[in-house]
Amino acid sequence: MMNMENILREGSAKTPAVIFDCASGKLELRGRSIPENSVEFYKPLNDWIDTYGANPCNETIVDIKLEYFNTSSSKCILDLFKKLEQINKQGSQVRVNWYFEQDDEDMEEAGEDYQAIIKLPFNMIEVEEI
């Protein structure tokens, strides 16, 4: 259907595992995101979403399972959400599942920060371990 490659990346000590699957409309970030310069890391992901947005699935599910991210990443993640916001406006139903570990108020609040800025449905999910 779509002529684009999925993104599959293993996580590292400073970067999250990434699964962006265009056929199922499932996008996942898992682990930690603390690179010194996150633009380098996130640019290909944001570019992928641009391409995906031209021909998205009816439903797009975004699973954010981050243990921690630095402020350099926070801006890039916001850009990613802004692109998804556009895709949501254009017809694909986008849903964000924001995972956070029990008692991790910081990550819970981080999810709320994005909710306050981005017009997308957020589902806050508390889990024992990410």
Partner: peptide
Amino acid sequence: RDYYREILGTGSVSEKGTAGLGMIDIAR
């Protein structure tokens, strides 16, 4: 929290990848 959201929502990332949020985040 509001200040953090304000800078996050309006600021841009520098070439170095900094977003002007570091100290606010540390304080928070």
